[in-house]
Amino acid sequence: MTTVETRPNWTGRYLEVEVGPPAHGGHCVARYEGRVVFVRHALPGEQVTVLVTEDHGGAFCRGDAVEVHRESADRVTPPCPVARPDGCGGCDWQHVSGSAQRALKAQVVAEQLRRIAGIDLSVTVEELPGDLLDWRTRVRLAVDRAGRPGYRKHRSHQIVPVQDCPIAVPGAVEAVSGQRWHRGAELEVVADTVGQLHVSELRPDRRPRLVRGGEVVERAAGREWRLPPGVFWQVHRAAADTLAAVVGEWAQAPTGGVAWDLYGGVGLFAAVLAAQVGPEGSVLVVESVRRAVEAGAANLADVPQVRWRTGRVERVLGELGDERPDVVVLDPPRKGAGRAVVQAVTDRDPARVVHVACDPAALARDLGLFLDQGYRLSGLRALDAFPMTHHVECVALLTR
C-alpha cells in the first residue's frame, strides 16, 4: 500500500526567507523547510517576511514579501500605490530599477532556453525608446460590483479600483475611471498614434459597444494603418516599429521569392516582407481572426503580392500543397506555435525562420522542436516591450 505524503497548508502563515533567483512569471524563488516558495514583491538576495497566499499542499507555495529586512541595492519605491502585496496584479517589478528589471528578465530567458531547449546562451534584454512609465497604449480594465473600473489582483478575480495607471499613456485610464459602468463588464481603451482615445465596453451577454472614438490610426513600418477597435496591435509605443525592423533585418526574403507570415494579424510583418520580395514575389499571411484579415487586406490593398488566408495556421498549412517558402515569419500567441505547426514549417525546408514570441518558455519549447528538425539558432534579440511587468518580447532567427 502506497502512503501519500500530506503537507500542512501554509496559507496565511508568515515565513522568514532569503530570496533566491528570479523565476518565469514575475516572482523569485525561496526555500523553506524543503519546499519552494515563489515570492512576489522581492528581489534576489533580500531577507524578507513572506505571507503565504496560496498553498495546494504540493512541493511549492506562493506568497508576497510583506516586510523587507535586508534590501537589495536595486530596490526602488514603486511609482504606483496599488503595486503592492494584495494590490494590482498587473505589474511585477515596479519595486525594481529599470536596469535591474531587464537583467532579471535576461536571466529568466536564458534559464528557459537552457532548461527547456538545451540552449546555453548569454541574453541581454534591450531597452525600447521611451521610459518605464507612460508606454502602454492599450489597456483592459474589469468592472467591480460597484461599477468601478480597475485591475485584478494577482491570480484572482478580485478587482482593485484605480483612478489612473502610471504605465499607461496619460489620459487612457482617466477616460473611464470617473464614471460607473455595468458590473461584470470589461473596458478596452486604445490610445492611437494620432492621439485619439477609443473606448469599448465588453459585456459577456452582448456585442462590444463602442463608447468613444472609432477607427484606430497607427503608424509603423513606414505605413499608416487604419484599424477597427479590438484588433490586435502591439501595446508599447515603440514595439511595432522595432519588431518590424528586426524582422526585416533577419528575414532577408529574396527578390521574387516566397515568404510566409504566420499568425500575421493585420500584416505588419507582411508589409516588410512584401517590400523585400517585390512585385514579382509572394507573401502569404495566415491569421485566424477574420476582422484582422479584413483590416489587413484593406490596409495593404496597394500591395498585390500579399495573399490572405483566414483560419488556424495548422489547418491552412495542411491545405497549401507543395508550396515552399524561402522564409517564414511566425508570431504565435502566448502558448507558442507547437509541434504541428513547427513540423509543417520544417517540412517545407525554408532557409530562414524568424520566430517572434512574448513568452520565453513557449519560445524555448518551439526552438527545441526546430533544433530537432535540423535548424540552428543563429540569433536572438530580447526586447523590453513590457516594462514593469515580467513579460519580454523575443525574436529568434533559425537557419538550416
Rank of each mutant, 00 (worst) to 15 (best):
residue 10 W to K: 06
residue 71 E to G: 00
residue 160 V to D: 10
residue 261 D to T: 04
residue 298 A to D: 11
residue 164 D to M: 01
residue 162 V to Q: 06
residue 349 D to G: 06
residue 75 R to L: 09
residue 28 C to N: 10
residue 143 V to C: 08
residue 289 V to N: 13
residue 385 A to N: 10
residue 45 G to D: 10
residue 297 A to T: 02
residue 248 G to C: 08
residue 240 A to I: 02
residue 319 E to I: 03
residue 85 P to S: 08
residue 160 V to E: 10
residue 35 R to Y: 13
residue 68 V to S: 03
residue 126 E to K: 13
residue 70 R to E: 12
residue 189 V to T: 03
residue 298 A to L: 14
residue 392 V to R: 04
residue 78 P to W: 07
residue 220 A to Y: 00
residue 394 C to E: 12
residue 226 R to F: 07
residue 57 G to T: 00
residue 306 V to Y: 11
residue 27 H to E: 13
residue 250 W to R: 02
residue 286 V to S: 08
residue 241 D to S: 15
residue 179 Q to E: 14
residue 144 D to H: 01
residue 194 V to K: 06
residue 245 A to F: 02
residue 277 V to F: 13
residue 222 G to I: 00
residue 61 C to R: 05
residue 385 A to C: 15
residue 279 P to M: 10
residue 155 R to Q: 14
residue 198 H to Q: 03
residue 379 G to S: 12
residue 315 R to E: 15
residue 296 G to N: 10
residue 244 A to H: 02
residue 57 G to R: 02
residue 278 G to N: 13
residue 115 R to W: 07
residue 256 G to Q: 09
residue 178 G to P: 09
residue 371 L to Y: 07
residue 32 Y to V: 08
residue 34 G to K: 02
residue 398 L to H: 03
residue 270 A to W: 01
residue 356 V to K: 01
residue 269 F to S: 10
residue 60 F to S: 12
residue 298 A to C: 10
residue 262 L to Q: 08
residue 172 A to P: 08
residue 338 G to N: 12
residue 143 V to M: 13
residue 18 E to G: 12
residue 227 L to G: 04
residue 329 V to R: 01
residue 384 D to M: 08
residue 367 L to N: 09
residue 133 L to W: 11
residue 121 L to Q: 15
residue 142 A to N: 04
residue 340 A to R: 14
residue 205 D to S: 11
residue 120 D to N: 09
residue 264 G to E: 14
residue 328 V to C: 12
residue 323 E to L: 14
residue 362 A to E: 00
residue 54 E to I: 01
residue 364 A to K: 02
residue 366 D to E: 06
residue 243 L to C: 04
residue 157 H to A: 12
residue 333 P to Y: 09
residue 244 A to V: 01
residue 111 E to T: 15
residue 110 A to D: 02
residue 343 Q to N: 09
residue 114 R to Y: 03
residue 345 V to A: 09
residue 289 V to W: 03
residue 15 L to F: 14
residue 67 E to W: 04
residue 380 L to H: 01
residue 24 H to Q: 08
residue 99 S to T: 13
residue 395 V to N: 11
residue 140 R to H: 12
residue 172 A to I: 10
